[in-house]
Nucleic acid binder design. Structure first.
Length: 843
DNA sequence: TGCTCCCGCCAGCAG
DNA sequence: CTGCTGGCGGGAGCA
């Protein structure tokens, strides 16, 4: 079977997809799906599908193309005359019926792949009726074709937090083809994403990907707007009514001075120059508007739970539609669509609210919260919220079990905010959630970007696997507590303390040597978070700061990660045995080469505003400042921060110093493994931590990765270490024995695995292995991500990844492209199609 | 049986 | 006028 698979792929593309299947995780098959889809689609797609212009696709990052599916399609169309393709063509031509079926198969391809890669590949080769029948049998379930799943695949294609310099253009055609769905479906996704500013329309059939940078702001704005519009009251009103009677009297719902004008208000908010429209205009009913309103409901709700019927009623009321059952039904359908996308974004999760009359479908907000008050940056918010969510999930689980029989459907107003969970259906819980299958690919893409940006020297192999696909948490896009972590080359190491520490090691000062930007991160500035933040990102504006730190700590607690790092004989100050890293605030790390630092510093400061995809910009501020813990105490939370220059989208990884339960985990064999809770932080977030710059740990091997001992004290092989520092990151063995095994044993498998980062969850463990043979002679042949456009190991890398992989900072910055880009964004003037949510909101 | 929500028709509107 | 967008609701999968 495998042979067939490979053959087929070969026919279609030069790439070596074969490996993709090997790693099928079922939960993380997005990449493969895309690939396969192409295969599928190509034959059948003489479709209106205008030849996809690759250049359009990644206008700004041509280097990436090797991966874009579009190319494949084109290619295929251009040279379809492979035996298989030929046969398909003939069959298709022979019978419309068959063609139709073929088409359907194509649509399902992604899902099927997910299900069973091998089977899939087999089928592809088969052309006979039997094959067709087989396809029918293989037909994915409705669930598998859900918009949510599709959305995940969509999201998997782009980094959650793209670099400022990274400008990604989304071609609806290409995406549709890649994902094997009709464009119509993509519109649904894009519309919702646009409502949250994750994307924006650049031109016809073209969208720009912004990522989640401005999400916090957008949400803040929506929350504010929701409050202004008294959505909470409306919700309470409807909910109360629900309690009393099921009657749905739309006419009566108007209240609180809420008026149609408010609808307009939303529109205006979104698009200042938006022409006034009638309440019933088409655009008023747009999915974007609905999405915004839907989100607003969550944001203003104390319980953070919104039932679809209530949301639908409110929406109908606002739209002034005739309140008939049909409208209601339609509204609910749309809400499901929106909810699916939001769920994929890990902003909400499905739950059920039990009432007198039975269970009611509802969704619970699990995204960032309190941004309005905290004012912390988006990253922090997300981290914090995620941590909270994580905890809550646990609570929910227990609660659900304990209260399974209870019925609770209190009006939002009556609920205690502190007690978030109303009775939730057991099935809604993590692990068992129907959405479990939804894997967050964001991580995956982020890693790609990250890897690609590793310092010049740094080559990183990232291997990660979703521990438990079932974990809803894994859905969290980025900065998840459990994200497979990562990090890497050319970085600087710092010991960060959960709280402010006066006593900074002298060394920290020494660090000041770095350019001003980086120096800011150091001690002196530590306390003054705001200033630091500013410097770090010029754009950022100081805002409320707060819980970031606190939250971060929580996150950290929530999601311990297993880290396996190349051990490096340390000699200096504090050695960095795993333990040390773990608990000692004093632990010192290798001093990274200056040059290595510089990149890091630049990365931090360099988060330049991305003119492009930044609708509202990353102005979001991140100001973690509050340090609640007493500075003097041994920090409960001590972190080892590995700063990434450019990688990881500028995020830094924090390893908890205090928790190193599984310190050395020989699990993977010869690698020293260190289980360290860690989290990824955006550069700005670091400002909240006092930084202790640790003296370089003399490591003989530092420059020679190969020399790393297989076991023993763990040292982070970092950037400074030299180009050789290749890290392999994967899930901890403990989490997923299987994964661990793979990581340590079969290089081949590793590659593919590395690509499946999507599901990474809070529980994910990251294993960093030195790639060099030195690692205990580990056959660790991880995928090496290179900055260079040239794919190192195409086989192991999936196309989508490549997109980001091969992007080089330099290429991204192409002036011409930028210009073009700018123009494009401007062209987006079409008021009707644009929804502008001031991400600058609070301002 | 009711909840979900896929699917694709077809109208609005931009280019 | 073309074709991109996306509202809309029938109807089928699923629990």
């Amino acid at each position: 079977m495998e042979v067939n698979c490979l053959t087929l792929k070969d026919l279609i593309s030069p790439r070596q997809p074969g490996l993709d299947f090997a790693v099928e995780d079922g939960e993380n098959a997005q990449k493969e799906n895309i690939f396969v889809d192409l295969l599928r689609m190509a034959p059948k797609t003489p479709i209106k599908n205008e030849p996809i212009d690759l250049s359009k696709q990644k206008i700004f990052t041509p280097e990436r193309n090797p991966i874009t599916p579009v190319k494949l399609v084109d290619r295929q169309q251009a040279e379809p005359w492979t035996p298989t393709a030929n046969l398909k063509m003939l069959i298709s031509a022979a019978s419309p019926d068959i063609r139709d079926r073929e088409k359907k198969k194509g649509l399902f391809r992604p899902i099927e792949n997910k299900e069973d890669a091998l089977t899939d590949s087999l089928q592809l080769d088969v052309v006979g009726d039997s094959a067709v029948d087989e396809f029918e049998k293989q037909r994915p379930s409705r669930k598998q074709k859900s918009l949510g799943l599709l959305c995940q695949k969509f999201l998997a294609r782009y980094p959650s937090y793209p670099l400022s310099t990274e400008k990604t253009t989304i071609s609806l055609d290409e995406v549709a083809v890649s994902l094997g769905v009709e464009r119509r479906r993509i519109y649904d996704i894009v519309n919702v994403l646009e409502s949250l500013h994750l994307v924006s329309r650049v031109a016809k059939n073209q969208y720009g990907w912004h990522g989640r940078h401005s999400l916090p702001k957008t949400l803040r704005n929506l929350q504010r707007l929701g409050e202004e519009q008294k959505y909470e009251e409306q919700m309470a009103h409807f909910q109360q009514k629900e309690l009393d009677l099921m009657d749905y009297k739309l006419g009566e719902h108007k209240k609180d001075g809420y008026s149609d004008s408010q609808d307009q208000q939303l529109l205006d908010f979104s698009e200042p120059d938006y022409p006034s429209s009638s309440a019933n205009s088409r655009k008023d009913k747009s999915l974007r508007i609905m999405s915004q309103k839907f989100v607003m409901l969550f944001l203003v709700s104390k319980t953070k739970i919104v039932t679809l019927d209530v949301a639908a009623k409110i929406l109908i009321e606002e739209s002034q539609d005739t309140p008939d059952h049909s409208k209601f039904k339609t509204k609910v359908r749309r809400l499901y669509d929106i909810a699916n996308v939001l769920t994929s974004l890990a902003l909400i999760k499905k739950v059920h609210v039990t009432e007198e009359r039975g269970r009611k479908p509802a969704f619970k907000w699990i995204g960032p919260v309190d941004f309005s008050s905290s004012g912390s940056d988006g990253y922090s918010l997300e981290i914090g919220s995620l941590a909270a969510v994580y905890r809550q999930k646990i609570e929910d689980n227990s609660q659900a079990k304990a209260c399974a029989s209870k019925r609770v459907t209190p009006p939002s107003s009556s609920l205690d905010p502190a007690a978030p969970s109303p009775v939730l259906s057991a099935d809604s819980e993590y692990g068992v959630t129907p959405l479990a299958h939804q894997v967050f690919s964001v991580t995956h893409t982020d890693l790609q970007a990250f890897s690609m940006q590793n310092g010049p020297n740094g080559q990183v192999g990232v291997v990660s696997r979703a521990p438990a696909a079932s974990d809803v948490e894994s859905l969290q896009p980025a900065l998840l507590a459990g994200q497979p972590l990562v990090y890497v080359p050319s970085t600087s190491l710092f010991m960060l303390y959960g709280r402010l520490q006066e006593q900074l090691s002298p060394g920290s000062r020494a660090t000041s040597e770095r350019d001003s930007r980086s120096s800011e991160v150091t001690a002196a500035e530590q306390s003054s978070t705001p200033s630091v933040q500013k410097r770090l990102s010029e754009e950022r504006k100081p805002q409320e700061e707060e819980p970031a730190t606190k939250r971060q700590s929580r996150v950290y607690e929530d999601g311990p990660l297993s880290l396996v790092i190349p051990k490096k004989p340390s000699d200096s100050t504090d050695m960095a045995p795993p333990e040390t890293v773990g608990d000692g605030g004093s632990a010192s790390l290798d001093d990274l080469p200056r040059n290595g630092e510089r990149p890091a510093a630049e990365a931090l400061s360099g988060r330049a505003p991305s003119a492009w995809g930044n609708p509202s910009g990353r102005t979001e501020t991140e100001k973690p400042s509050e340090e609640k813990d007493s500075p003097t105490e041994p920090p409960l939370l001590q972190y080892l921060c590995v700063q990434s220059p450019a990688g990881l989208n500028g995020f830094s990884v924090l390893f908890s110093g205090s928790q190193i339960p599984h310190a050395v985990g020989p699990s993977s064999g010869q690698l020293s493994s260190l289980s360290v809770p860690c989290m990824v932080l955006p550069p700005p977030a670091l400002g909240s931590f006092p930084v202790l710059y640790s003296p370089p740990m003399p490591r003989p091997l530092s420059s020679a990765p190969g020399a790393l001992p297989n076991s023993g004290p763990v040292n982070l092989g970092l950037p400074g270490l030299g180009s050789a520092a290749h890290l392999l990151i994967g899930p901890a063995a403990m989490v997923n024995p299987k994964s661990s095994t793979l990581s340590s044993t079969d290089p081949q498998l590793q590659g593919p695995l590395s690509l499946n980062l999507s599901p990474v969850m809070s529980r994910a463990h990251a294993i960093i292995q030195p790639e060099s043979p030195a690692c205990g002679g580990h056959p660790v042949s991880t995928v090496q991500l290179q900055q260079s456009p040239a794919p190192v190991t195409p086989k192991s890398i999936r196309r989508t990844h490549r997109e980001t992989f091969f992007k080089t900072p330099g290429s991204l910055g192409d002036p011409v492209l930028r210009r073009r880009e700018r123009n494009q964004s401007r062209n987006t003037s079409s008021a009707q199609r644009r929804l502008e949510i001031p991400s600058s909101g609070a301002d």
